[in-house]
Design a protein around this nucleic acid. Structure first.
Length: 585
RNA sequence: GCGCUCGUAGCUCAGUAGGAUAGAGCGCGGGAUUCCUAAUCCCGAGGUCGCAGGUUCGAAUCCUGCCGGGCGCACCA
């Protein structure tokens, strides 16, 4: 519950009264009523569109109705004034005590503030990272990882029962290529000169230790064996090694999944065959010939009949192949099995985080889920655009240990986990992101990580100052709850409380929209308000948080500072960023 | 050619459930500054929200068409 929905309930109650009173017709629909923060603070504390939404269906004049509603709203507790403005908004001014109560709520709840029951404990599955287990994660994965992880935390904060899932694509041809690459490194470890790594295999050095370990454990027993003999073993061994590598990388970013789902296991358990039987039974499979793609024709295009899924029946542009030319299932086929499995494990709400280059894939998977769950399963795919690494505006020339790309590990080593996590959320997921390795270490206002962390540190530091000024005062959070908040009379202070009180609503809105980046922007704005108040006190000493000869006022203001600190910490917690108490080097 | 996605200040981007006079940072112009914790602060200029229609009491936001950028486009994952 947040102040807005709480007040909406009040408005609805008064509308019911007006209906009972005959001022509004029976069956008046209140669902479109909203209670908002007015854009311009001088308009009041809260604002509702009730009259504008209800007037027309009721056949009433908007402003007349607004006056009627406004009059009723005056009877609501804490409402000091209700004025009709503009095209029919009702602006409410609330007693300061209302806001002091919000402040106390923050201190009482601590960083749990903002926790919501919006999700009603409904199960949500967030699948993210899901990189092929063929090598270390790179910078692009870092973005999807953070977006997925924070979205999961956000949903948990909003009251959903969240499962974080990683789908291991360990069944395709790229895994054989991995095994062959590892086998080469194995022969190399046994002293053989392997020359260059052939085209199509993975050249990265990260496979050297895998080859070495194979040699250490297996000796030369596989060296002269046929591929068919060593492949299964080496495949399993190297996939396990790659997953360890990936898990390590994710650990460095503070990411841990609840569930790892293996494509290979699904396939081996016959899940794909079963899903195809289901589709067959529903008459959704047929053998047909697809039109060649328009535009550039692939070199090896050949027209041939294929087994197709009727994706077009569920909103896709065309039907989609489920079998390859060699008779094996396509990746899409196992993806259908995977999502069906996920649904059956109890997740009607599924969120997948993918790279934007997979955008063309969304419709067919949604179509598949639709077909397989009778429309019950809902998939939302978050597509993440590219990350461009820069150094002072120039393309970064970071050392590339992997040989071909900058790894997630390189990035975390260079700037730290917290910076990576925060910066990855400073853009909407579907907008390209510039990550400037130099700027993110700057201590200035245009570095959002620093700016937000600094606000938190400054709160902490103000606490120290207050303790020095009043060594005997009770400045614990519990103690501050007994401070005389009515001493907070400055408009800037009250404005700050309003921003803080918007946090629970922010959590709910961001969770509903599946947009974790909103957290970063909210925290930046909050930090800016706090810094602004601080700066203002340089010119107006009466605004300072610590007032030497007024302990009670200082305690009131410390309650506000503690609340700012708490909400920032709460936000950073959701983002998986550690709040710092000081920034001194 | 089709699909997805984006198009907001000179630049990089927000815009909270369709709400009031569209915001921030950088840059630019002007001013303040031995300051409770420094990493500055304040003020100002700057906009046809890509274009054109439509829905609505009300559109940057929803719908349609066009223009422009990015991504993808049988079987690879």
């Amino acid at each position: 519950m947040n102040v807005f929905s709480a007040f909406k309930a009040n408005v609805e109650k008064e509308i019911e009264f007006l209906v009972a009173n005959g001022d509004l017709p029976n069956g008046t629909d209140t669902s479109r009523i909203s209670v908002e923060l007015p854009r311009d603070p001088s308009h009041g504390d809260l604002s509702t569109n009730a009259a504008m939404v209800l007037a027309k269906p009721a056949g009433l004049e908007t402003r007349d109705l607004a006056e009627t509603i406004a009059e009723r709203l005056l009877t609501v507790e804490s409402v000091e004034s209700a004025e009709v403005a503009g095209p029919g908004f009702i602006n409410l001014r609330l007693a300061n005590n209302f806001w002091f109560q919000q402040l106390d709520n923050i201190l009482k709840a601590g960083t749990a503030y903002g926790q919501s029951d919006l999700g009603q404990n409904r199960a949500v599955n967030v699948e993210y990272v899901s990189a092929n287990p063929t090598g270390p994660l790179h910078v692009g994965h870092a973005r999807g990882s953070v977006v997925g992880d924070v979205l999961a935390s956000l949903l948990a904060k909003a009251g959903f029962a969240v499962t974080r899932e990683y789908y291991i694509n360990d069944a395709g041809g790229q895994i054989d290529a991995l095994a062959r690459s590892a086998f080469l490194r194995y022969r190399e470890a046994l002293g053989e000169n392997i020359g260059g790594i052939p085209e199509g295999l993975y050249p990265g050095d990260y496979l050297k230790p895998v080859g070495q370990e194979l040699a250490d454990r297996e000796g030369d027993k596989w060296r002269d064996a046929e591929e068919a003999q060593w492949l299964p073993f080496v495949r399993e061994f190297s996939v396990a090694a790659m997953l360890d590598l990936i898990r390590n990388d994710l650990d460095a970013l503070g990411i841990r999944h609840d569930f790892f789902s293996s494509e290979r296991e699904l396939v081996e358990a016959g899940a794909v065959d079963k899903v195809m039987e289901t589709l067959q039974a529903d008459d959704l499979l047929y053998v047909g010939t697809l039109e060649p793609p328009k535009g550039k024709l692939p070199d090896d295009w050949e027209e041939r009949p294929q087994m197709l899924f009727k994706a077009s029946k569920y909103g896709d542009d065309t039907d989609r192949p489920v079998k390859k030319s060699d008779g094996s299932w396509t990746y899409f086929a196992s993806d259908l099995a995977y999502h069906q499995d996920k649904y059956r494990r109890g997740f009607p709400i599924m969120i997948d985080v993918w790279g934007a280059d997979h955008g063309g894939y969304v419709k067919r998977v949604s179509a598949g889920i639709n077909a397989l769950t009778g429309g019950e399963g809902k998939l939302d795919v978050k597509l993440c655009q590219m990350v461009r690494l820069l150094e002072n505006g120039e393309p970064a020339k970071m050392s590339k240990r992997s040989g071909t790309f900058v790894t997630l590990r390189d990035l975390v080593d260079a700037v730290g986990k917290d910076v990576v996590r925060f910066i990855m959320l400073t853009r909407k997921n579907d907008a390209p992101l510039d990550f400037d390795l130099v700027k993110v270490r700057e201590q200035s206002r245009d570095n959002p990580v620093f700016y937000v962390q600094y606000a938190h540190a400054r709160c902490h530091s103000v606490g120290n100052m207050a303790r020095e000024a009043f060594p005997d005062a009770d400045l614990t959070t519990e103690g501050l709850r007994r401070a005389d908040l009515t001493r907070l009379t400055e408009s800037d202070e009250l404005a700050l409380i309003r921003s803080l009180a918007a946090w629970p609503r922010m959590v709910e809105a961001a969770a509903e929209a599946h947009e974790p980046h909103r957290l970063a922007f909210y925290l930046y704005d909050l930090a800016a308000s706090f810094h602004a108040l601080w700066s203002k006190a340089r010119e107006e000493p009466g605004l300072r948080f610590v007032i030497a000869d007024d302990e009670e006022l200082t305690r009131g203001r410390m309650a506000l500072v503690r609340a700012v600190q708490t909400v920032i910490a709460s936000g950073l917690e959701v983002m998986g960023v550690t709040p710092v108490d000081e920034l001194r080097e």
